[in-house]
């Protein structure tokens, strides 16, 4: 088993980039969740939402287009991240400062 010195405070730029990519990977589902919940703010046909004065209910065809576009966007972002982001099975989180 490889030993580990205490994680250094400053990292080389490559590993710095890698860490920020991981942050992005952690952030992506949060962004997705928020975007998927946006439709709840729309005026709807149930009459239970915020009673805007002359709000037309949103049509489902438009809602579909919005949701599928968000979905495609998430897939594309995840695909992009997965190219650069590899979970090295032998590298613990503290060990990513290796060259």
């Amino acid at each position: 088993m490889a030993g580990r010195p205490p994680p250094p405070v400053f990292l080389a730029s490559a590993s710095y980039r890698q860490r920020r990519l991981r942050d992005a990977a952690r952030l992506l589902p949060v962004v997705g969740m928020v975007l998927f919940l946006v439709p709840l703010l729309w005026p709807d046909a149930t009459g239970l939402s915020i009673p805007l004065v002359d709000a037309e209910p949103v049509r489902n065809s438009n809602a579909m287009i919005y949701l599928f576009l968000v979905w495609i966007g998430l897939v594309a972002a995840a695909a992009l991240l997965s190219v650069f982001l590899r979970s090295d099975p032998e590298t613990p989180p503290g060990g990513e400062d290796r060259p």
């Binding site: 919940l37 439709p39 709840l40 729309w42 709807d44 046909a45 149930t46 239970l48 939402s49 209910p57 949103v58 049509r59 489902n60 065809s61 809602a63």
Partner: peptide, 10 residues
């Protein structure tokens, strides 16, 4: 045709 989702259920 119309968006009628209950927020809690969604």
């Amino acid at each position: 045709a119309l968006w009628d989702q209950n927020g809690a259920r969604w």
